[in-house]
Amino acid sequence: MNWLAPFQYPFMVEALLISALVGIVCAVFSCYLVLKGWSLMGDAISHAVLPGIVLAYLCGLPLAVGAFAAGLICAMSIGWIKSSTRIKEDTVMGIVFTGMFALGLVLFTKVQTEAHLNHILFGNLLGIEREDLIQTVVVSFLTLAMVLILRKDLMLFCFDPAHARAIGLSTVILHYLLLALLSGTIVASMQAVGILLVVAMLVTPGCTARLLCHRLDRMLVLATLSSVIASCLGVYVSFFINGSTGACIVLAQSFLFALAFVWRGRQSKRTTALN
């Protein structure tokens, strides 16, 4: 077996580069998502983008625009239903996102699109079209830039929203900004792992890093590192086992999380033994 074989194919090199880029965006954002406790929101929005994608296809718009709009509609309707009833947020999420996902599936089978349902659900990193590639890169850089510029405000919003308001920040704007960035991250990583597994990209790197460090800046670096390694490893392994690229990436993410979990367990055992 030739270990360097994947690098001889341009589509593999391209896939590695895109997965690394997506890995960075997801990792940075995942730190805030995990700290805010919005993992379920990530899951909800990633499913809810489907009808947006189909409608965008129908109208001839970039798929990213439709996905972004659907993601925001999902988040806003969750907020609206929650504030006007007594139903708990996770229940509202369950209703809204499954409803939107089902709508997407129905629309999809009614409208014969050229896009394959499988590609949207599970990603299509190896056969990515030029147009989708450009979209992914643009959305990735925009989202990443926004998160990095606003990282202090987002941290404060996650940590202590009451103080954020007290010093004059608008938590309503920050709330919807975080949701918009979440939608952006989902759109960016949709091509790589598909909307069904996106939530793993959005949660696992942040969790892995959180196990290992007690400072946000180190957490951001470590999450990025683990996410990029997992993404590239997933693509690389999928070449040899001829498996689904998205699933391989997510498996690699889970593997790194498991490593961190075991290492952390041994560390804390050692410190208790020392004490």
Partner: peptide, 22 residues
């Protein structure tokens, strides 16, 4: 358990006095 130090928390008191890049 939030990954911030004592210094970081007290610095949050200054955010309102800084520009938007904090």
């Amino acid at each position: 358990t939030f990954p911030v130090s004592v210094w970081d928390v007290v610095m949050m008191g200054r955010y309102g006095h800084m520009n938007f890049l904090r």
